[in-house]
Amino acid sequence: MVEHGKLSGEYNIVDEDEYDLFDHQVPIEEFQNMLREDDVPDEVCVVGLDGIFGDDDAVSELSKLMDRQANTLENRRPLPAIQFAVEGTFQRRQRDFELQTGGDLYRLSRIFGPQIERRSSGWLTAPF
């Protein structure tokens, strides 16, 4: 059985206060380098996602890197389990989800695309 917040084969976007996080934690910049070098470990927790939403170029770059590596990640065996630990709550907005942190709302589809699924109140998933 899969532990909540640690589903392999999909991005797990989790409230860092509600779920156990993987021990191997990296900042966004290091995760981007892992994607560029095709060197993503089997289990990794990415921290600092909420910090890049104010920079449209950073959001666009991360989204492009994740999109380019989607096939590679989907075809790996074993499938990697990738968490994005965030501070805040998830709000549903029509067919999208937003991360509410402080007084700000950030559309998660800008990074993860439109196929975000709610697994529980503090856990969303998105396909690679």
Results as ranks from 00 to 15, higher is better:
Q91R: 14
F84H: 00
A85T: 00
P127D: 15
T101G: 08
A85I: 00
V14N: 04
L21Y: 04
I13H: 03
D96F: 06
F112N: 01
K64F: 14
S8C: 11
R77L: 12
N75S: 13
Q32G: 08
E3R: 10
E74L: 13
P127T: 10
V2K: 15
F128Q: 03
Q83K: 01
R36E: 15
K64I: 14
R93Y: 15
I28Q: 07
Y11D: 06
L62M: 08
K6I: 03
Y19N: 05
L35F: 10
L65M: 09
G48W: 01
W123P: 01
V46Q: 02
L73N: 01
D67Y: 11
M34S: 10
V86Y: 00
D42Q: 13
E29P: 00
L7R: 13
R36A: 09
D17Y: 15
M1P: 08
E87K: 10
I82H: 02
P127I: 04
I111W: 03
E43A: 10
G103Y: 07
V47D: 05
E37F: 11
K64A: 13
F112Y: 06
N75H: 15
D17F: 11
S109L: 04
P27Y: 04
R68I: 03
H4R: 14
A85W: 03
R107H: 12
Q91N: 13
G5F: 03
D42M: 11
R119D: 08
A126W: 07
I82E: 02
D38V: 10
L105T: 07
V26Q: 09
E61S: 11
G88E: 01
R93M: 13
E43K: 09
Y11Q: 05
G103R: 12
S121V: 13
Q25L: 01
E43V: 01
G113D: 10
L73V: 02
D50L: 05
V47G: 03
P78Q: 04
E3F: 10
R107V: 08
M34A: 07
S60A: 13
Q115G: 11
D15R: 10
E3L: 10
G113W: 02
S60N: 13
F31K: 04
I28E: 04
T89D: 11
A126N: 09
V40K: 04
E61C: 05
H4N: 12
R110L: 14
Q100E: 14
E10G: 04
L105Y: 12
F31W: 06
F90Y: 00
S63N: 10
D57I: 09
Q83V: 02
E37H: 12
